[in-house]
Design a protein around this nucleic acid. Structure first.
Lengths: 339, 339
DNA sequence: ATTATATCCCAAAACGTTTCGGATGTCAAA
DNA sequence: TTTGACATCCGAAACGTTTTGGGATATAAT
């Protein structure tokens, strides 16, 4: 059941382990004829090097780690599957393996997953996503000098390599769009405020409103989790207000979909009686009814890019930019107003 | 930067590597006092065993592999993130690591990913999902006798361990539901017919229609990929027909959402002018507009379960059932008819 | 004939564990 | 005093690679 080893090959060929190894490694100090013999025997016997042994010897794993922050038992987020596809494809392209762990954020289990990957030397570098205020993961990794790239900034004093999307700018566009449509009672469905991306988006929204003489009235900011269910509940709260908001900005698309659902269940026409916007532009946004106005960030590409940055870092290459801030793109569809 | 090894600990304590190792391993042939000394020193120096070295010695990896079949660059599927969460959480609970690869199905790259994991001895077992007709992955793994559990059956002669949801039964219920509502012109948006789950669903649908004197008319079966975009295009084709179908059954929820979108873009009221159903019951189905009639399968639990089965298998334990077939559940919402 | 230079090959160490088979010392029973 | 039993510890081998630092042989230059 277990495959042949270098030793088996060497014995069969009457060569030393060293020579077989070097032949396969393409070293120039083995005769071309021998090399061919080795190659052929390896092929015949179905030799595949034992990755574990190689890792132990080389002192590196050629593996990158990714701890996915999952919430609750039903973690169903199209956003993450797309990010994962980007990361996975890029890793494969560069001959890296990908070790994945799914853990609830800010728990001992999450901490343990990071420690295991880092201190157990399971991976050469880590990808950190959904950065949080005073993110302990970043402190931990920075202190150790362990290679990592984060998708999202932080409010810590330490300097680290990250890629982020300018959420404040995205929300500025959303706000301007809504203001241009004449909305004055704008409400905001926010994710928990310890998430950095949420903080940036909130700031962008509120700053732009204020610059235009508006603001979130009391009760017009409601916090919920990042799911359709959360958005649904939050929207119901908002619609109980009197007067109710004329426009509702959600922190991501999933929440926006939930919000639309809540409005529609009350008989309101989204895009008419109330404007709703999201953030992310997941593929479903385009096929929602009505199609969702949102802010696009290239999730798949982001996955590839942070993965590429990390691998460069691991290889010890100099990164062209250690801090990347992407401009998102406003995508206007019908949920924010028809006509 | 690299952490301390057993050797470092042993030197510091004036003990042998063996004793330190056995002390940490909780063996009874080391004095309690020594054990405490070792434990404390390990704690102080922040000793964490090198997982790679341990793997090489033990001859197993305590890792399970999972190759996610991804389509195209934008692979955004809530279904998979939920499945992954189930798998990941169960694996972690049992102290297994999870190695993930993302590859397009039926490509040389996919084959290579499997070979690497198996023959490179990177994992102790594999999870196979989205089984296909004459699935080469199953043939490959069966021939080698490599431990794996599949989510989905196959049409191969070989016997292997699987868990599946009875798609035929699910579709039977969908069909009966639509027939009870009086529909006679039922159309079907199918996924590529080399996917086993699709075959089962198709059969269930067609058999039930036939048993009731109905059938899919020509042009009423259209095949597309498993995305919203696919469903959207397929639905447009169906709506160009004259007479157009009065009910459209989609092979999964994502496609159903696309189909709804297409119908609505033509001014049709879903659930009124045309009935639409899905399959999976992703969380978004509930918050679609109108909410989507669909068939529920417990994706998260399935993830946990196949993972648990695989780990049992790896541990050499006897499985209570090698073939599990779950009954899905019809969830009637408004997209199939209002009133 | 001697020395230099390639060319081809290999033994042994190393990576950090776990485990097998003793080795040593102590103490009680014979 | 010897024997056995027990408690505690350790040296060395093993897992399968890669790499280091030569060694042997043949050919070419002096």
């Amino acid at each position: 059941m277990r495959g042949p080893t270098l030793k088996d090959l060497a014995e069969k060929l009457g060569l030393s382990i060293t020579t077989v190894s070097r032949a396969l490694g393409g070293y120039s100090d083995v005769a071309e004829a021998t090399r061919q013999r080795v190659l052929q025997a390896a092929e015949e016997m179905g030799y595949v090097p034992d990755v574990t042994a190689r890792r132990l010897q080389k002192g590196r794993t050629d593996t990158i780690g990714f701890v996915i922050p999952t919430f609750g038992p039903r973690f169903s987020d199209p956003y993450f599957s797309e990010l994962l596809a980007g990361i996975g494809n890029e890793a494969a392209r560069q001959n890296f393996d990908l070790l994945v762990s799914t853990r609830a954020p800010d728990t001992p289990e999450e901490k343990q997953a990071y420690r295991r990957m880092v201190e157990g030397r399971l991976v050469d570098g880590l990808l950190v996503v959904r950065t949080r205020v005073k993110d302990p993961r970043i402190t931990y990794l920075s202190n150790l000098g362990f290679p990592f790239v984060s998708f999202g900034r932080s409010d810590l004093a330490v300097d680290f390599t990250y890629l982020d999307v300018d959420g404040a700018l995205g929300m500025e566009w959303v706000a301007q769009h809504l203001i241009a449509l004449g909305h004055e009672r704008v409400a905001y469905i926010s994710a928990p405020q310890d998430l950095m991306f949420c903080i940036h988006r909130s700031k962008g929204l509120q700053a732009t409103l204020q610059r235009n003489g508006l603001s979130l009235r009391s009760g017009h900011l409601v916090v919920c989790d990042l799911t359709e269910g959360g958005g649904f509940k939050a929207m119901n709260q908002l619609l109980d207000l009197n007067p109710r908001p004329s426009a509702v900005v959600a922190c991501n698309d999933l929440m926006a979909m939930g919000a639309m659902s809540a409005a529609q269940r009350r008989g309101l026409a989204v895009g008419h009686d109330v404007a709703i916007t999201g953030f992310d532009d997941i593929p479903l946004a385009q096929h929602a009814h009505p199609p969702l106005t949102t802010v696009r960030q290239p999730i798949y590409d982001i996955g590839r890019r942070i993965c590429r940055m990390l691998i460069r870092m691991i290889r010890g290459e100099e990164l062209p930019e250690r801090h990347v801030l992407l401009e998102p793109e406003l995508v206007v569809r019908e949920s924010s107003g028809i006509g």
